[in-house]
Structures are given as C-alpha cells and as structure tokens.
Design a protein around this nucleic acid. Structure first.
Length: 904
RNA sequence: GCCUGGGUGGCGAAAUGGUAGACGCAGCAGACUUAAAAUCUGCGGUCCGUAAGGGCGUGCGGGUUCGAAUCCCGCCUCGGGCACCA
C-alpha cells in the first residue's frame, strides 16, 4: 500500500545504494572498533545481548538496538572512546526443545542463527565492534562460568540443597514454570507436582544488604529500584522459640510485640516436624492436604482474597510469653521457602491470620486496643495500627502505643533477656537456584566420588566440555540428558583417583548473562575471564539498555556477580551499570480467539487474509467468523471459530512478525530507525503499523532533496567557491539577496536545535529529537525556497542538520556529509556545539491571563523586567477592555512568559 | 494477591506547575499532471456563532494553587514482573 512512496529507480533519495555503500565502508575501515585508549574518556554502551531464536529479528527487536546505537554514535561524536559490543546468549530451553523435537544438536544450529541475527543487525546499520563478538555456548566462554562456579564453591557461596521442581508424573520429567499451565503439563496435560531434588544454589542472600545499599548510587529508574528492594524484602523482627512436647518450633515474626495475642500456630504443609507431631487421628487428612498443596503455585497459595484452607494437627505449642497452650495447624498460605516455614498467628493484628481464625473459629486476643474499643468479638478486620498495649495481658509493656518502630526493638531486647528468642533480619530474597536438569547449558564442574564425596574439578581441567548427545530426552529420576551419556558421567575422582561420576546438572542461562559485560572488555583472553586493568578501564557500563522484565532476575544476578568479583579482587567496581534505561515494547495487531487473549496459531486457519480482517474488524469492532482445522480421532475437521484483534507483543509464532530486512528494502534502514525513535517515547510501547513508515521516509527524502539542492546550487557571482564548513562565527555579508533578519532567524533555529537535540539524546527523548530536526529542516527548506539556497547560512544549516542527523540516520548523514565536502566518517567527527549568543531569542511571546484565562498574547523584546511586562500587559487594549469595572487584586509575572491578573 | 509502569484529537504523540494538542500518520481541499502516484500549499479537539469571539475539554470523583494533563487523596481501567522463558 505504501509501495508507491518509493521511487523504484532510486533516483530520488537512493537509500538502497547509500546504505549498502556506507555499511561496506564502515566495515572495511573498522570505524566502530574499540581500542583501549587511556588518554580518552571511555563510554561503554551496552544493549542486553539477545537469545538468537530460530525466527530471526523482527522490527520489535529494534526498540532497544536502535536507541543503543544512537547513544553510541552520539557519544563517539562527543569525543568519547566508545565500546558498543554485541554477542549471543545462546544456551536455553527453546534450542533444547528443538533438539528433542527434531533431533538436531543445538551446537550446529546456534552459529547459523547467530549469523542471521548479525546480518540483520548490520542491515540496521548499528555500530557494533564485531571483533568482540561472543557466544555463551562456546567452550572458551562457558569455561569461565565453570571457573566462577569453582570460586563461588571455594568461598562457600555455592552449595547443594534440596529444592522442589515441577514434576510431570506422566512423562517423568522436570518442567519449567512456563511449561506448567493451570497446574498441568502443557504437552501431555498430565498432573504436575512439586518434587524435591538435590540441586546447586548460590548464596545471593549473603549479599542482600550490599545489593540494597548499591542501589543508592546508580542511575536506574526509581520504580525498578523499588522492585529490587521489595524483591530483596528486608524485614527486621525476631525469631521466637515455641515448645511442643520435646520439640522446638521456631517462628520468624516482624511483630514480636504481638506475641501476647498469638492464639495458634501455622506450619507449612512441607514443614519437617509435621509428620512427627501429628496425632494419629489427623494423619490421613494431613497427608491429603499436603498432597493438594504440592500442586499449587506459591502465588495461588498466598493470594490474599482467596478462601483460607487448613487442617488441625492435633498438637499444641506453648506460647513462651504467657505459657498459653495454642493449637498447631497446617495451611498452604505458609510457605517452606520463606522464613522458618512456621508462623505464630495473631489474628487480632494480622489480616490473613484474622481470616483464618474466623474461618476455623479460633480465638482472637487483642494486644492493643483503643480505650473504648469493645472486646474482640466486635472486630471486622485485623487491628493493625493504633491503640495501646492492654493492661490485662500482664506484660511489661502495658500502655505502650502500637508503634512498630518504637516498641519492636524493646520487645526484642526483652525476649532475648528471657531467652525465648532473638532479634533477626529476614529477607524475602531466596538463594539462587542454578541447577537445571537439562542438556543445553554449562556443565557444573563437580564430581561425585563414593569415597571423597563432592569434589570440584581442578581449574586446569576446565572446561568440562558439554558432550554431544544422541538423545536429548531427560534421563531417569529427573536427571538431565547428560546422565545417559556414559562417557561423560564416568570419570576419575580428582582427589583420590578412584572411579567417580560427574555432576549431570547444567547451569541456568542466567549465569552466562551475569558477567558477559566483563568478557566484552577482554573477549579473547585465554588465560583469564578478563584482564583486571582492561576491565577496570571499561567498567562500569555507562549506559545499559534492556527490558523491564529483567528487573529482578538478570539485573539482580549480575549485580551479585559484580560484587563477588570485587571481593575476589578481579574488578574495582561493585556495580555493573552506572545507568540503566528500559525500552518499551513493540506490539502488533494480533488475531486472537474471541473473548480470550489466546493467539491463533498457524494451522488453525483455513484462510487468513490479514489486512482484510483488520479492516473488517476496525470497521465493525465485532468478532469475525473464521475456521480452524482441528484433529478429532486422527481425522482433520473444520471447526468454526470467532476472531478478534488485540495488541500483543510482535512475534513470529503469532504470524505478526515484520522483519527489519523487508522494511530496510522498502523504505531504508534509516527510515526504520527514525520511525522506531519517533513513533513513541523510548520507554513506551509502540503499536506497529507499516503505514507510519511514510512519515520518516518522507522526512529523510526531503532532507536529501534540500541538502542536494544546496550542494549543487551555483554560488552567486563574485563569491568565493569555498563555503564555510565550521558552525558558528561570522558569515560573509551580502552573499545572496537574503534579508539579515531571515539569516539571523535561520541561524538561531540551528543553534537552538543543536542545544535541544544534545539535551534530548542525553535524556533519551529521541521522539522529540526527530521532531526538532523536522522543524529545523522545514526552516531550512523555506529559506532555500525564498532564494537563499546559495547563501552560506543555508550551507551552514545543512551541515548542522547533517551532523545532528548522524546518530539517527547514519547512512544518509555520511552520504550528505560527503556531498557537502566533509572529510571522513561522521562517527569520528565532532558533535556540534550550540552558541548561546546565536541561539538567544530577541523577542518573546508573553501570555496575558485574567483570572487564569488567556486573554492576550504580546510579542515583546526578550529580557524585559517584571514591572515592564506587567505595564505592557495592563496597557493592552484587550486587557483594558476586559478589566473594565473590575478591581485588580493581584498580578503574577513569570519572567519572559506570562502575566496573570487576578481581578474581580 | 504482591511489586511496578501507563490512560491527552480519527491515530502515534508534545507540553512535568504557566498559551493543551508541537511534530507526524491517516483524511479533506487546492496546485502540478492527459491521468494516477509522487511532490508542493492549505485545513483540521468539540460545541455555539456568518464572523469577531466565547463556552467546554487531558480515564472518573474530590483537593491544593493566582494558575493543574502535570502536585495530593480516593476510585476505574490497561500493560510488565512474581524466582525454571530469556
């Protein structure tokens, strides 16, 4: 539909030739190669490295690569020594699934996929230093994953512990969370339970306080920092010991001051003491309940609005502060992974405990009460703040107000003195489970020896190479496919030399991405993960760009690793990224099954005339009747369905992918880049529509026309052939018949635009950068059309515009620069500087309001005093007429902008 | 449920306490053309009015202020994350 915009002959704005030409020149000259140069200020810009999937890049991926490239180019032009690398995060599940399905080794597929990504990124014209390309699946890379694991183990930060996995009973395999849908396996629809397996964990919790503290000094979005803080979830409180027969049950509470109101106790169904304390009569009920809880996700279990469930164990515990016998229950809203897996329940002051007590008719005892509050029976919800400690409880705290920050430390001190508990800081953060029972990952470099136990593989035997595999299906008992490869498993113990077995778990992919930014500094080092001096030069990342979805996963892990490396003396910084920006998504109008958000998969249609359907849907806003093919008893059957459209993330599997390749071919990569930047603010979602490509394309084509016109305009008689090529300073007079005022206006626009563009790129407001350049171009075009095409000011503006355009549309800019007689590549050319004296306005528009409503606009010389502005406003005819018969109460003047007259 | 980010014309948006709708898309009108496309010029929130001009208007309800899209309180609603997708 928009095809016609393009001149197929390539005569007007021949973007295909231009882009091909400059991509070749940049590659030949290695313009974007980064070399360490301590005489220059470095700037490390990094876009999170992608997982190269089989479907290649679509325009949605450009939402981060393009802005990242703009920053790299902008900083290079500002004279920084820029590092802008790229690589592949290629371990992971999709490749493994593919291997199981098609029997192909990911090892042979990954390089091909990476090549496709690289080719597509080059089509976009991004300025990566490809000499630093890395691939996380290369043994020369994952060797260092293993080395780091050994270091973590050495420091006691890697340990083995039982952790539950999703277990599909039918298939006897471990499932990822993503593979569990409504508590069932997404492939076989069979039941899924939690099954404990011994696995490797990293003690990220011992860095919890440093991970919190480190957030203070970094330039990341406040919301994202809050998410991290809440994820770490530091809470101060106490551990309290309750006796239960000969057993001791320890609970964690943030409210030890409410101990006097603890009327029952709740254990998680998985708590180890459950089996021991349960009385015979309750045993069967409890086991059934625990089995039911194992099927639920943590979110389902803890959801607040949800109806509470639970079972009485038949056992009692002794409340240490008052000797009360309180019943012990189990309930699924208490989780094993958090705290001690047991809580004391204070229904009077905690809402969840309150709901539980109401449901099971358990006693409620108020610790705090307003003087005139009636007794417990009148409560409709937990009484979480206010009131004073009740006298009748006989505690030493009678009369204290319910003020957590004051009373909790006092109570902690007291229970410590009593010996029934101690102050404790609890984190919500859990240790990092890095074991995966999968093939396509870094082998964990450990050996299990029957006589020596767990023995690390010595450093000089690294890497433990991931072996080839015949069959990618998981091994028995939930072990990884590696367990079926005898040549891999069988080894000798590094300690005693006897026969031993290798660990068959592999590492989670998040290990690879927790330090890749350091490898980019020194990617070819064979003797170390990186050289400290080199990494210290480049680190930290000055601008890190990636999606918000990484807020608490990757972005926490890589901070942990960086702090660990600092502790080992491997790096000087303790935060990986000084600044971080999160791009928005790119959505496409996607067909979904009516009334759901379930996308329609290939093969579910008989027909799919996309454009037609979209038009029809937009016209009627009603579901469109369609058909899909389903299989019933091995026979294909056509089933009628209804289809609607909704904005979902662009994706190949949903048949909505548009590739950068096709856009570059139709409109040019520069147009695509400009569109991505212009269409929505960097952090906002773009709703993709190809129609929108017209705007950026037309803009760049107009710039091409205008600058070409200026370049080929013959200088007027008597003029020197050489036109100024340095911005600012004085221009020759009387060059062309242009009024001085017009020349001044154009130059002012240029210098104002330089200032605005510089400022806006710095603050990631790329959309307003584009509009500012459009406005500058329009001013230049007008000037040329008015007879100024050969005027030095036109050429000066053309040069300025070209320089400002360089980060956004680098191919076109380099081409125009060459036409203008510029030397070299713009990547290596100085960014323009705004001259404040040329940018200053001589006149300003002052708005005159009466009672906050605009009544008049005055054009006045800039820099008038407030008194002069007020006088000018009161002197205007319009204002005088409006004020007729009114008394002026107050006049507010905003210098150079506004006068508001309050009158009645 | 918990944590987080949004909501402004037909559409993408701009304005971060001071002229709401810059810039662009789609549309309409005109110029050029044998014609169409491209290109160029112009119009464009809404209501009243021939016009000049005026009223209303930034998800909803309240508040602060001379002045609120912007700040505060309460709602509605849409997106992202929730530890094995990466």
């Amino acid at each position: 539909m928009s095809e016609a915009v393009i001149d197929e002959s390539g005569g007007r704005y021949p973007f295909r030739e231009i882009e091909k030409k400059w991509q070749a020149r940049w590659a030949d000259a290695k313009v974007h190669k980064a070399t360490q140069d301590t005489s220059k200020q470095k700037y490390y810009v990094l876009v999170m490295f992608p997982y190269p999937s089989g479907s290649g890049l679509h325009v949605g991926h450009c939402k981060n690569y393009v802005p990242g490239d703009v920053v790299a180019r902008f900083k290079a032009m500002q004279g920084y020594n820029v590092l802008n690398p790229m690589g592949w995060d290629a371990f992971g599940q999709p490749a493994e699934q593919d291997a199981i399905k098609r029997g192909v080794n990911p090892r042979t597929v990954v390089p091909t996929l990476a090549e496709v990504y690289k080719k597509q990124l080059n089509i976009l014209g991004v300025s990566y230093d490809w000499d630093r390309e890395i691939n996380s699946t290369d043994p020369s890379y994952y060797k260092w994953n293993q080395w780091m694991f050994l270091k973590l183990y050495e420091k006691g930060l890697a340990y083995r512990d039982a952790a539950p996995v999703n277990w599909c009973i039918n298939e006897s395999t471990v499932l990822a969370n993503e593979e569990v849908v409504d508590g069932k396996c997404w492939r076989c629809d069979g039941p899924v339970v939690k099954k404990p397996l011994p696995q490797w964990k990293l003690r990220i919790t011992s860095y919890a306080d440093r991970l919190l503290a480190g957030l203070e000094g970094i330039d990341w979005a406040e919301g994202l920092k809050t998410q991290q803080r809440d994820w770490i979830g530091r809470s101060e409180g106490a551990e309290v010991d309750f006796a239960c027969g000969t057993h001791k049950i320890t609970v964690f509470t943030t409210r030890p001051d409410t101990l006097w109101g603890a009327t029952f106790m709740v254990l998680s169904p998985e708590h180890p003491l459950v089996a021991e304390i349960t009385t015979g009569a309750q045993k069967a009920t409890l086991e059934a309940y625990a089995a039911e809880a194992a099927k639920k996700s943590d979110e389902d279990r803890t959801a607040e609005g949800k109806e509470k469930t639970g079972v009485f164990t038949g056992a009692y515990a002794i409340n240490p502060v008052n000797g009360a016998q309180i019943p012990i229950w189990i309930a699924d809203y208490v989780l094993t992974g958090y705290g001690t897996g047991a809580i004391m329940a204070v229904p009077a002051h905690d809402q969840r405990d309150f709901e539980f007590a109401r449901k099971f008719d358990l006693p409620i005892v108020l610790v705090y009460a307003e003087a005139d509050t009636p007794v417990e029976s009148g409560l409709t919800e937990a009484f979480a703040s206010g009131g004073a400690f009740r006298e009748s409880l006989g505690s030493p705290f009678s009369g204290e107000p319910q003020d957590k920050s004051v009373i909790v430390p006092k109570v902690v001190k007291w229970i410590e003195a009593q010996g029934c508990g101690r102050g404790k800081i609890q984190y919500r953060l859990r240790d990092w489970l890095l074991s995966r029972q999968r093939y396509w990952g870094t082998p964990i470099p450990m050996v299990h020896c029957p006589s020596c136990g767990i023995v690390p593989v010595p450093e000089d035997q690294l890497p433990v190479v991931l072996p080839d595999c015949e069959n990618y299906k998981p091994g028995p008992d939930g072990r990884s496919p590696l367990s079926t490869i005898e040549s891999f498993v069988k080894t000798t113990c590094p300690s005693c030399g006897g026969p031993a077995e290798r660990e068959t778990d592999t590492m989670a992919g998040s290990v690879d991405s927790s330090w890749y930014f350091l490898r980019f500094a020194d990617p070819h080092n064979e003797n170390a993960a990186w050289d400290k001096a080199i990494a210290d030069y480049w680190m930290p990342i000055d601008m890190y760009i990636g999606g918000r979805e990484h807020a608490v996963g990757h972005l926490l892990y890589c901070r942990f690793f960086t702090k660990f490396f600092q502790d080992l003396g491997l790096i000087s910084v303790d935060e990986p990224a000084a600044a971080l920006r999160n791009q928005g998504m790119l959505n496409a109008f996607t067909p979904v099954l009516s009334g759901t958000d379930k996308s329609i998969k290939p093969g579910e249609f008989v027909h799919y005339p996309r454009d037609e359907w979209i038009a029809q849907y937009n016209a009627n806003k009603a579901p469109i009747p369609a058909e899909r093919i389903i299989e019933v008893d091995g026979k294909q059957k056509i089933e009628p369905i209804e289809v609607e459209f909704s904005w979902l993330k662009m994706s190949k599997s949903k048949q909505t992918a548009v590739t950068p390749d096709e856009m570059a071919d139709k409109y040019g990569a520069d147009s695509l880049r400009t569109l991505i930047l212009f269409e929505a603010p960097f952090e906002d979602t773009i709703q993709w529509s190809e129609e929108r490509m017209n705007g950026p394309f037309r803009f760049l084509a107009r710039v091409w026309d205008t600058v070409s016109g200026i370049v080929s305009a013959p200088p007027p008689p008597g003029a020197s052939e050489t036109l100024p090529s340095v911005l600012g300073g004085d221009l020759p007079d009387n060059w062309a018949p242009m009024p001085d005022a017009d020349v001044k206006t154009l130059r002012r626009k240029l210098h104002q635009t330089i200032a605005k563009v510089t400022d806006d790129i710095e603050s990631f407001r790329f959309n307003t950068v584009v509009s500012a350049l459009m406005i500058l171009h329009d001013a230049l075009r007008k000037f040329c059309n008015a007879g100024g095409v050969a005027h030095p000011a036109a050429r000066e503006t053309a040069e300025g515009l070209t320089l400002l355009l360089a980060p956004l549309a680098p191919h076109l800019a380099d081409e125009l620069w060459e036409k203008l007689g510029g030397q070299g590549f713009l990547f290596q050319t100085q960014w323009p500087v705004s001259d404040p004296s040329l940018a200053a306005n001589e006149e300003v528009t002052v708005v005159v309001q009466i009672n906050g409503k605009v009544r008049e606009k005055l054009t006045l010389p800039a820099g008038l005093s407030n008194d002069a502005l007020e006088a000018a406003a009161l002197d205007s005819d319009k204002v005088r007429a409006d004020l007729e018969g009114k008394t002026i109460r107050k006049v507010i003047v905003v210098p150079g902008k506004l006068v508001n007259i309050v009158a009645n």
